[in-house]
Design a protein around this nucleic acid. Structure first.
Lengths: 337, 337
DNA sequence: CTTAGCACTTAGGCGTGTCGAGTGCTAAGC
DNA sequence: GCTTAGCACTCGACACGCCTAAGTGCTAAG
């Protein structure tokens, strides 16, 4: 009972099961794959694999399906990530063209990834935790309302309308703006609130009240600007692939609506030597996703942001891994360019 | 065979069916409702209602379920929109508190609406087609990159990074900014590209090249800023309520991912006298939504933007209508304040 | 170690029979 | 003229029993 063949059998079981969604038996296996041995031999191998907890039989006389450990073993074994087809490469190329808006690039990217893998694609927008303040703008809107705009060195812009004492003049705003700029320009976003607040103390008395209000607003803008955002596409694929299990899909959709869950999920994943992280079934901590797997990888500067796909444990891992990695590479390239 | 009672019967059938999801028979009807007549009489009424096409029987000996016409009749008949419960009012109140960021308010709103109705909540962000230019900011980022920021009188901010000839100085940018501001300030967003372009022609030769580039960017920013955006919550409710029809859910999820479809849907809906628009099943034009209904209404200035819920034709219309209307009112109040 | 053969297990498909809910119709009652 | 009770009829849902096909484990031989 040769060990290499046994792994070959596992591979074959995983592949067949992923495609057919039905337990695969020994006979079907020897027919579909050139294993060079008979069904009986395969049965012995299968018994051994079951002993090791890599496959299991739903009932006495059905074929075998991979367990989570089986998938894990299978995934760890893939070393040569399947190259993309021409059509896939072209699709990615096309995505590259004709957009300079970051949000649009990201949006197209997730859609593409969802389409390539037939899974739900999830993307975390780059979070720039080392972002600094490039510009601050205060625009009086009349009636004591001030539009506060914060621009970071990464090109991100956040704004908020703040209410200040109505007697605050446009000249006051201009003074405040230069004071804030002088104090905070180039500072890290995290420090913005504090720095701006401190700057107020050196101001003439009349400016302090509105200054403090605006400083606080700027601080929360800075924090806000660092909140991770998630974009997503392909939820319909979920329904399609889940097929006959509407029971399973509800908690997954719920999880997908909670960005917090997804962000935690991403942050927990650790990439392996191949630069890809795969989480299978219950390996993740969130109960609603007990039957789903996630394939993800980092992209962009420092690979800080994540992009990946999410689908049933019974997913096509090689394809997903290849697509995720390819998309992440293209994204990194775009962000760097 | 009194006509008022017949309508009462229709009402009872719709209500029971919405709650039980099962065809409702004459006997169950007289038990659950105080109709004051026997089951046999109800049967006669039912036969008449079926004749009129308001209800139908799935098979010979099951109860009746409302047809789309039946729902329509039922919906048109509701004149006193059910008032919200205390808990619901409080939930809405809480939403009001503690946020001044428009995006966050809208985000909370859809979540709330989804929760109140147990449906998918969809919200179109206000489109401000009469928005005007309040401020333009050009920030040099070095290496020929200029961050172009457009602020409208509605407080919306859009930005884009544009590449200009590297020799463009910060002073040039300042001149360009004042030129653009002078020409475009207070102008409608639609005209921005043209106006800014025209302004370039009066500039000194050296500024024209970068000026034209920036004018074009501003124009597309202006257009961009008017693109409708959709936010949504509660897709998990869809799976839950659809129960045993994973076949039905896929096209709906697909439609929900296509903002274009939703926008068209919203734009086609016409509010009735009560200020609410209801589209039932095939009344909408998109095939994938043949078995879903939409309850929507306008909000904000001129009721230009829409907010609503989407769910199976077999939905709780009174609750949905009440919730949608209440939420829209609160939203309008916030936007006005 | 591999293979063929065989007995054993069991899910799933299929036909049958029963049950119950619900209907339409008719005739009697108010 | 509307309402009601009674009754025969129609089907869907469910349970039961049967059979088949697929797949297994085991054993004995190559």
């Amino acid at each position: 009972m040769s060990v290499p063949r046994r792994l070959e059998v596992l591979r074959a079981i995983v592949e067949d099961y992923v495609h057919s969604r039905e337990p695969v038996g020994s006979k079907a296996l020897v027919e579909r794959h050139q294993l060079g041995v008979s069904a009986a031999t395969i049965r012995n191998d299968m018994a051994a694999l079951e002993e090791e907890g890599l496959i299991t039989a739903p009932h006495t006389s059905a074929g075998r399906i991979p367990t989570e450990h089986g998938y894990r073993y299978f995934v760890d074994q893939i070393d040569a990530v399947r190259p993309l087809s021409h059509a896939e490469r072209r699709a990615i190329q096309q995505m590259l063209e004709g957009t300079d808006d970051l949000d649009e690039v990201l949006d197209r990217t997730v859609r593409l990834l969802a389409q390539l893998t037939n899974q739900v694609a999830v993307l975390q927008v780059p979070q720039f935790s080392d972002a600094t303040v490039r510009h601050i703008e205060l625009v009086g809107l009349g009636a004591g309302q001030v539009l506060t705009v914060l621009i970071t060195n990464t090109g991100k812009v956040d704004q908020r309308v703040v209410v200040v004492p109505p007697e605050t003049s446009d000249e006051s705003l201009a003074s405040l703006k230069s004071a804030f700029l002088a104090a905070a320009s180039g500072q890290r976003l995290q420090a913005l609130g504090e720095v701006a607040g401190a700057a107020c103390e050196h101001l003439p008395q009349s400016l302090r009240a509105p200054g403090r209000i605006l400083a606080r607003a700027l601080g929360s803008l800075g924090d806000n600007s660092m909140i991770d955002r998630i974009i997503m596409a392909g939820t319909a694929n979920l329904a399609r692939s889940t097929g006959d299990f509407p029971l399973t899909i509800t908690p997954v959709l719920e999880a997908l609506e909670e960005q917090v869950v997804l962000l935690r999920l991403f942050s927990e994943m650790e990439q392996d030597a191949r630069g890809i992280a795969v989480q299978i079934g219950r390996e993740n901590l969130y109960g609603g996703l007990a039957e789903t797997s996630v394939v993800a990888t980092g992209y962009g500067p420092g690979s800080s942001a994540k992009v990946g796909v999410l689908g049933p444990t019974r997913m096509d891992y090689p394809t997903s891994m290849a697509a995720v990695r390819a998309v992440a590479r293209y994204l990194s390239r775009i962000l760097a360019g």
